[in-house]
């Protein structure tokens, strides 16, 4: 892998304008979705608290701005929102709550070569991206880039093993072996692997929160950059 050639991920091409709008409404329909959205926010809130309530947060990828109201709960916080898809940014900007208008600044950039100088934000808030990246080298490249851009902490969510859902998924995959799955762009990363990758990218783990311990795969890690 050469540092100059930006890494492109397969899944990131699907976010055109219509898809982006659909994505914006996705988390607002149905009771189960609402409940899971509520739990997502709770996890994010706890992770931010663990990170010491950072003042300048880079929301990457921000998607349709789903976490902006949450990030804006701290009145003094400034949010830098970045996404690889200009359509997502456009939809997010259009649907942005007016109260946040002055505090969210959007930025079109890739997570692998963030268009910011070294140590320019307090924290990088990276929800639901790492589980899309299968190649450990790509994950490490991204974590290293996070290490460069953050001044203090990184919050990442990913799918880890050691729970019922991951076990069922592995069984399903074993049964379907040979046939390509239709949802082949999301991956479970063993917790031990993820943690050793964090360490080799120069992060210490401050703590983690599980979506539903023992059952769900989602886990949110709060990492602190080591000098």
């Amino acid at each position: 892998m050469t540092p100059n050639l930006p890494i492109q991920l397969e899944f990131s091409n699907k976010y055109d304008s219509a898809h982006a709008l659909q994505y914006f409404h996705k988390h607002r329909a149905g009771l189960a979705r609402r409940l899971s959205d509520w739990r997502d926010r709770q996890l994010a809130r706890r992770a931010l608290q663990l990170a010491g309530d950072p003042g300048l947060v880079l929301d990457l990828p921000c998607g349709a701005g789903r976490f902006w109201p949450l990030l804006g709960e701290q009145p003094n916080r400034v949010i830098l929102a970045a996404d690889n898809s200009p359509h997502m940014l456009e939809v997010a900007r259009r649907e942005m709550p007016p109260a946040l208008a002055g505090r969210v600044h959007t930025l079109h950039t890739s997570a692998f070569a963030i268009d910011l100088e070294a140590a320019s934000v307090d924290s990088i808030f990276c929800m639901r991206l790492l589980h899309h990246i299968a190649d450990p080298a790509h994950r490490l490249a991204m974590l290293r880039e996070f290490h460069r851009v953050t001044r203090d902490t990184v919050i990442v969510s990913l799918w880890v093993d050691g729970n019922y859902k991951a076990w069922r998924r592995r069984r399903l995959e074993a049964r379907r072996a040979g046939r390509p799955g239709e949802n082949g762009n999301r991956f479970v990363i063993p917790a031990a692997t993820a943690e050793s990758e964090f360490a080799s990218a120069g992060f210490a783990i401050l703590g983690h929160h599980d979506f539903l311990p023992g059952y769900a795969m989602w886990r949110v890690y709060t990492l602190r950059k080591l000098a």
């Binding site: 010491g52 309530d53 003042g55 300048l56 701290q74 009145p75 003094n76 916080r77 400034v78 830098l80 600044h105 910011l116 100088e117 070294a118 140590a119 320019s120 934000v121 307090d122 001044r151 203090d152």
Partner: peptide, 23 residues
Amino acid sequence: IRLAGQVRGRDSMHELAPPLAPE
């Protein structure tokens, strides 16, 4: 301690960084 952490390395931060005092 939190303030010390926020001040450390702050000179390199993005110009949008909010002031510390309101927190």
